[in-house]
Nucleic acid binder design. Structure first.
Lengths: 222, 222
DNA sequence: GCCTATATACTCGTAGACGTGTATTTGGCT
DNA sequence: AGCCAAATACACGTCTACGAGTATATAGGC
């Protein structure tokens, strides 16, 4: 019993990396080789909404090929540069693309933003330090908001249809919400520590230890 | 030249999984063994804001120990159940905890929500289908909002300080923003397809292929 | 005509996140 | 008294994301 399983149908894909979805959409348009996909995503500013890493790109393409969503159409080479493989969408890939889009649009999925995690652990820092840190955050948020607004203006000036800036509008809305929330939170903490000020301060009566980091306030992404 | 490197100081940690931060905060309170941490996080409803997977928990703890942030305090066993290791925070761990919290609170990090990715690829589905999918999303969002509101009410009834519900308030604000955005987007698409309706429809004149999934509309998390 | 910076195009290795399995114990119910 | 479900506790293996490296081509400046 339980003989060697021969998997004829490619196993059901696990939809994880959204970069794979982007690949499918690009190939819907025309056949491309990996580097070209990356370049196109760059040019269209999709990298702002979809995390693009070269390592991931090639992994993702390999997985898509293995599960029959895309296939190599031809390979070519120029001089002694590495060989380029051009891929195209399979019918199964087209179906997968549509299903995946449907899922993403119709069904909100719980994601775990880091800031929410930090908020849930707030009492581990003293209240007045929290207020200061949030002040820094407010500044960053304002910067981000301005940049996106500038980008939207530029797009409008180029008469680009608003459809191609929807992602930015969404991001902008979220940032504005966060800004409001954070400034409000500052006030609430200063006022009564969200109904917990006394106990909160007591937990941190004694020492206020120094940071070990050299406090370079550069920002990372992802 | 280049002799064998002997790394005496534990290598700089890469702050990735927020679960590690939760572990540090728990150990700040008192020494615990892994399963107890999980149970405590559950009881305090932190799993709603911090993704908790048993596999990750044990990996994360191992990493924290290897980099000197926590250390085993004692081991014990009850009957023949697997051995329990109780961990405690080291001084380095306390510093790390504070630095990490500071970073998370002060600096917004770019994360890539899936819905934003989908929005950036919108034209790959026909406009009227998009409107329908968004309608489904609206229903889900309303459900989520109601649940969180109910939870907040319950917390208030128990006279729990609002501080311990801040994460929920943040999530609620975000969901409300998304709801507004989505309903507005529906209208804009129906009106003029965000200034692109003609071309958008043309791309999808012919076929409207069926889904391959059995359209079970269950929701997954993460 | 040479040198360098940038673009082209991947390849490889590793670390870490997570699903799943496993084995014991407790508690409730009949 | 016995049995099933749930809780207790962790171990293991896989999958995959990503950093960093590699190697060639091209274009522009001086």
């Amino acid at each position: 019993m339980n003989p060697m399983k021969v998997t004829m149908t490619a196993p059901a894909r696990k939809r994880s990396n959204p970069l794979a979805l982007a690949v499918l959409v690009l190939l819907l348009e025309r056949a491309m080789h990996p580097y070209e996909m990356a370049a196109t995503l760059r040019a269209r500013r999709k990298e702002e909404s979809i995390k693009l890493r070269y390592g991931s790109l090639y992994t993702v393409i390999e997985l898509l090929e293995r599960s029959g969503m895309i296939r190599a159409k031809r390979t070519s080479r120029q001089g002694k540069r590495p060989e380029r493989t051009t891929y195209e969408l399979t019918p199964a890939g087209g179906v997968e693309l549509r299903d995946w889009m449907r899922e993403l649009l119709s069904t909100p999925a719980k994601e775990f933003p880091r800031f929410e995690a930090a908020l849930s652990l707030l009492p581990s820092l003293p209240p007045d330090e929290v207020v200061g840190l949030l002040e820094t955050r407010v500044e960053f948020l304002k910067q981000d908001i301005q940049q996106i607004e500038a980008g939207l203006q530029a797009a409008k000036a180029q008469k680009l249809a608003p459809l191609f800036a929807i992602e930015s509008e969404f991001r902008l809305a979220n940032l504005q919400t966060e800004l409001t929330f954070v400034t409000d939170l500052q006030l609430r903490i200063q006022k009564d520590g969200c109904g917990f000020l006394k106990e909160w301060n007591q937990r941190h009566q004694d020492r206020t230890p120094k940071s070990k980091s050299k406090s370079k306030s550069k920002r990372k992404s992802s």
